[in-house]
Design a protein around this nucleic acid. Structure first.
Lengths: 97, 97
DNA sequence: ATAATTTGGTTTATAATATAAACTTGTTTA
DNA sequence: TAAACAAGTTTATATTATAAACCAAATTAT
């Protein structure tokens, strides 16, 4: 009845990060930080986890002279996000009407 | 942009419990256990937390000679559930179309 | 020039959480 | 009356989320 929720996505900050990335081609660390309101440390950790899971890719480069970490959702990440949304619907159905 | 998610509801099992209770007048422990597939220990703990939060009420009685714990969602619990659903929509919008 | 501040992060320590294993109390069945 | 089962509760553990502390380089102020 209640499908298991992907623990990687069932996390406030990671879910917010995925939500941001689902809507853009790519986004850099500072942008995601601003959109989510997360602390840098927390964001850094969660981005690592999403990367390890293959849900996003990270490219480190420079914007001018400043370091810049750019993130992008992967097809696998997009699938996982969609699956998570679908699974959640089972839990929320009472409130989605 | 991303509203804070009620940590009491952002839990797989507690959310499932609330989802069950949102759809019925009341439900006893064993029924919830079966619907959610949870272990008794886990369920017991999570029911306590929901009770302490005022999201559900618990009545202990007997069904024949057997102890029977009956749970019911409160108006406050219903509101919190709805608020949680609404908040989540902000996170999921990319996947709800 | 160089000191102070800011940017863009990473590492690490801590506190909270979820979860199941172990336990309890009483009931039913063999 | 012993064994198995029902209905939970308590407690121990492992995981997790989170922010504080830290680091390196760039920018700004003195």
């Amino acid at each position: 009845m209640f499908p298991k929720l992907d623990p990687l996505l069932h996390s406030e900050l990671r879910l917010a990060v995925m939500s941001v990335l689902a809507g853009v081609d790519s986004a850099d660390f500072s942008f995601i930080k601003k959109q989510t309101g997360a602390t840098a440390g927390n964001l850094s950790v969660q981005i690592d986890k999403l990367t390890t899971a293959g849900y996003i890719t990270v490219e480190k480069g420079f914007k001018g002279k400043m370091p810049c970490t750019t993130c992008k959702i992967t097809p696998q990440g997009r699938d996982a996000f969609q699956a998570y949304v679908d699974a959640l619907k089972e839990y929320l159905s009472a409130g989605l009407d």
